Amino acid sequence: MDWVSTIVNGLLIGSLYGLFGLGLAFAFGIMRIVNVAHGEFIVLAAYIGYFLSTSLGLPPALNVIVVALIGVAIGYLLQAGLLNRVIGADPLRPLILTFGLSIIMRNAMAELFGADLRSIDAGALKTASVDFGGLSIGVLPLVLFVVTAACFGLLFWIIRQTRFGRNIRAAADDADTIEIFGVDHRRIYAAAMGIAIAMSCVAGVLLGMRSGFTPFSGVDRLLIALEVVIIGGAGSMFYTFFGGLLLGVAHLVGLKFDPGSGLLFAHLTFLAVLLFRPQGFAGVRT
């Protein structure tokens, strides 16, 4: 039963890891952009959620929705105002731009918010638990899993079942061709980045509810997001979720053997996948 608890909790934590990678995978799959500032957007969302919670008293569910909507606006403006100007055949230009943006954001957050560890008050969710066949599982980790699964499902539905999703897929395949049909691929890119940042913002608020964060927490989140995306196969949403689950289980298994080696074991798992299947489990973009 002890090992079952470890695996189950690893899957619940891993769902959040998958959500860390979702926005990164989505942006790369559509625009071939590696957003190096991805981790900083997660942390910024955590800070926004923190101040909405403490200043306005927003409940957790409304907090997530409001921060996600703010993320849509930030992502749209980022793509329309900056990234669309440098996106093209050379992938280094948006990479360098987002790298510089990450440095600016990290230092700005440290200046504005200080380096103190903060967390978002999740109320009774933080300590509540439910019993499943003798297995005690925290309500908050279950909520994280459900919200993450809903985000993946919603994004999959948008891409596969809506006209906007068809435009996104067309822009990802051949941005120049869709211009013939009167579709501005730059607006599609901006909307897609808005969705990507919104998913990162949801991950940031959930992170703030689950654990503490500082302005310097973004680097670790970016590393986990990159590992999740690479394990899944760059651009694949379904396998990004699977990659998060795998890393989460590896993390908890590592903690069981040595309390100080959880993330190390997760990183070693990533290296093992990279060694034996460097193209990721998806193999191709989906």
Score class of each variant (00 low, 15 high):
residue 238 F to P: 13
residue 122 A to P: 06
residue 129 S to E: 10
residue 238 F to W: 12
residue 177 T to N: 07
residue 249 V to P: 04
residue 85 R to T: 13
residue 183 V to S: 03
residue 187 R to I: 14
residue 208 G to K: 01
residue 20 F to C: 09
residue 259 P to L: 02
residue 107 N to A: 11
residue 252 L to I: 09
residue 114 G to T: 06
residue 91 P to V: 11
residue 241 F to C: 01
residue 174 D to H: 12
residue 28 F to P: 04
residue 27 A to F: 01
residue 123 G to Y: 05
residue 11 L to M: 12
residue 246 L to T: 00
residue 61 A to L: 14
residue 160 R to F: 12
residue 278 P to Y: 11
residue 76 Y to H: 02
residue 281 F to E: 10
residue 119 S to T: 09
residue 105 M to G: 15
residue 198 A to R: 01
residue 165 G to R: 03
residue 57 G to N: 02
residue 162 T to E: 03
residue 280 G to N: 02
residue 13 I to R: 07
residue 60 P to M: 11
residue 233 G to H: 03
residue 251 H to Q: 13
residue 70 I to G: 14
residue 25 A to R: 05
residue 219 V to Y: 14
residue 65 I to Q: 11
residue 110 A to C: 08
residue 243 G to R: 03
residue 48 I to T: 14
residue 11 L to W: 03
residue 137 I to M: 08
residue 57 G to P: 02
residue 127 T to A: 15
residue 131 D to P: 02
residue 157 W to D: 11
residue 269 T to I: 09
residue 118 R to N: 11
residue 284 V to K: 14
residue 174 D to M: 07
residue 207 L to F: 12
residue 142 L to W: 06
residue 188 I to L: 02
residue 247 L to V: 07
residue 162 T to N: 01
residue 80 A to Y: 15
residue 232 G to C: 04
residue 195 I to K: 11
residue 261 S to P: 05
residue 27 A to T: 14
residue 160 R to C: 10
residue 75 G to L: 10
residue 22 L to T: 04
residue 225 A to L: 00
residue 210 R to M: 10
residue 50 Y to E: 02
residue 6 T to V: 08
residue 68 A to F: 06
residue 185 H to C: 12
residue 227 E to I: 11
residue 230 I to Q: 12
residue 191 A to D: 05
residue 96 I to E: 08
residue 42 I to F: 07
residue 264 L to S: 15
residue 50 Y to H: 05
